[in-house]
């Protein structure tokens, strides 16, 4: 190996890592699109994610967390692009206050949920957490770990996101 060797072996060899990336390309695009809301930026983000992932693939030592590792890179890339192109900074830790209603709010159904709601009614941070929790089925703790925020913040953000969508449905929201 050219360069400093790792004490531990990377999770994948190059060929397997490339397969891993290509297997998740549409996932990366969906994530990117939810952040950036247009196809060109999402495509550009996919390239950047692949670039950073390949460059740092040796740091992935455990295959069982590979998708989470990739997700984190995708989020970081999208946030960088948001900051660069739109001047938007996202701080997950401060997006929501403690949840005031400790109920099973996740059991609620909204009557109609549209992609447009996710893109336009919710903030970037809310979209991210909704995506990870409800699309990727991460546990609350996993979302918290991934975004390095308290579980309580994850809960409160989800709660607020659902409220926002419901408010939109009753005609009182931004949607």
């Amino acid at each position: 190996m050219i360069g400093r060797r790792n004490k531990r072996q990377p999770a994948f060899d190059d060929e397997t890592f490339l397969m891993f990336l290509t297997r998740h390309d549409t996932y990366l695009y969906k994530m990117s699109y939810l952040y950036l809301k247009n196809d060109q930026d999402a495509l550009e983000n996919v390239q950047e994610v692949a670039y950073r992932a390949w460059k740092h693939r040796h740091t992935l030592l455990d295959a069982t967390i590979a998708k989470t590792w990739l997700t984190r890179i995708a989020i970081n890339c999208a946030l960088d692009m948001l900051k660069k192109t739109k001047g938007i900074r996202v701080d997950y830790a401060t997006v929501a206050k403690e949840i005031a209603e400790p109920v099973m709010f996740e059991e609620r159904l909204v009557n109609d949920l549209y992609l447009q709601d996710l893109l336009e009614v919710l903030t970037v941070a809310e979209r991210t957490i909704v995506f990870l929790r409800y699309y990727e089925d991460y546990t609350l703790q996993n979302v918290a770990d991934l975004l390095q925020i308290p579980v309580s913040t994850v809960k409160s953000t989800l709660y607020r996101a659902i409220q926002k969508v419901q408010t939109r449905q009753t005609g009182g929201g931004a949607g």
């Binding site: 390309d25 196809d39 692949a50 909204v110 409800y134």
Partner: peptide, 26 residues
């Protein structure tokens, strides 16, 4: 909620050829 989110996110139109190209370009 889970299924609703999944259904909506899956409606994102994916230009598969371009996505793969961009990934390989990266």
């Amino acid at each position: 909620m889970n299924e609703q989110v999944k259904q909506e996110v899956d409606k994102i139109d994916i230009p598969r050829g371009q996505v793969r190209s961009q990934l390989l370009a990266g």
